[in-house]
Amino acid sequence: MAPSEKKHASNQACVIPGGFTVLPVQFNSDSVAQHKLYVKEHKVRSDRSSHRPMDRTLFVLNIPPYCSEDVAKQMFSQFGSVQSVELMDNPGPLAQDSGPKISKFFRPAAKQGFKVGYVVFENSSSIAAAKSHPHNVPLVVCTEKCRVKTGTQKWIQQYTESFIRTDNLQKIVDSFMEGYDKRKKEEEEKQKEEAKQQQEDEEGWVKVTRGTKARPHSEAANKKTLQTVIRKNKRKELMNFYTWQHRNTQKEHIAELRKKFEEDKQKIALLRVQRKFKPY
């Protein structure tokens, strides 16, 4: 893990312990202050998914909130053409949503904070280019070519974009529900099939397969059965039948009273410490 320590006077890459290269970034050319991006090639043991190929993916930390995926793509394209950019709140594999594709109007709003990104380049050479980027030449978010809207401009744009034609919305709903009904039907059929398999055939045999269980149990139902059992057992028990039982109840009662008394005493002591009895 020793990056080539080329000693150039000023424009060398800055590498910190942990193997991250520091890339300064500023909003536009007039900015005085810079945020620091921390980049490294993407390297994990478990993730073998195809959309983050290890040799071509750059792992980027601390991407400022005004950097959208498009802006990031633009920004990193100076190291080579970018195939895709993924921005997330926390590092880790993409949440696997197996569900159907949903329209952006139905997705929960994304958090507008600092992000981590996975930039997938088309060529693996771009990674090296990014990692050797000199630390005193900042990347620029908002350039002449690619304006980034912030503040009131952005909010007005957001407001305008929140409008959707009613018939379009209706179409989205309809298509989703169609898909939902279809999936539902399929599931039902599958269940029916399984139920059929579970049934006895004419000769009284049940075919036992390794497949999924017929019905998922519910936790609530489990609890309920457990409680009925407990209740049943309790009913069988005799209370205050033997002398020792009776004596015990009395003892418990006195203990309870004692505890309450102690509690009160302690409450008072506590209040006294806090000077809660000084009327004025």
Binding site: F27, S31, P65, Y66, G151, T152
Partner: peptide
């Protein structure tokens, strides 16, 4: 500076 940028 982000305060300024975000609230332009």
């Amino acid at each position: 500076e982000d305060f300024c940028v975000m609230g332009k």
